[in-house]
């Protein structure tokens, strides 16, 4: 199971990096989304994997590590704020510069 998660993180990272290196803002936003999935999963993996042990007292005999979960929960929400901010920047730059190239140049 660990191998599957590690590979998933790897695939998400690779695709995220490739997209972030593209020249158009929308691809970069998608790449950032992939990268934030990868980072969230990686942080979550810091608490190791456990099945059927939610960190709710009384729900199970042993519990998964709640600390990475709390970290990742806020990271997901902040990640949304970041994605929203970047996509708005992309829109703004499209409106002001007339194209969606990340450096604001080239034909739209």
């Amino acid at each position: 199971m660990e191998a599957l998660l590690a590979l998933s993180i790897g695939v998400l990272t690779a695709c995220g990096v490739y997209l972030v290196l593209r020249a158009r803002s929308f691809a970069v936003v998608l790449g950032l989304t992939f990268l934030s999935y990868a980072v969230n999963l990686f942080l979550f993996a810091m608490g190791r994997l456990a099945i059927g042990q939610p960190p709710v007292i009384g729900a199970a005999a042993t519990h998964a590590d709640p600390l990475p979960q709390a970290l990742v929960l806020t990271a997901i929400v902040i990640g949304f704020a970041m994605t929203a901010f970047v996509i708005m920047l992309a829109l703004k730059s499209r409106a002001e510069l007339g194209n969606d190239h990340v450096d604001g140049r080239g034909e739209a």
């Binding site: 790897g10 695939v11 695709c15 990096v17």
Partner: peptide
């Protein structure tokens, strides 16, 4: 670059 980054993250 992406493959190297992915491999690194997976490892």
């Amino acid at each position: 670059l992406a493959l190297a980054a992915g491999a690194g993250a997976a490892a």
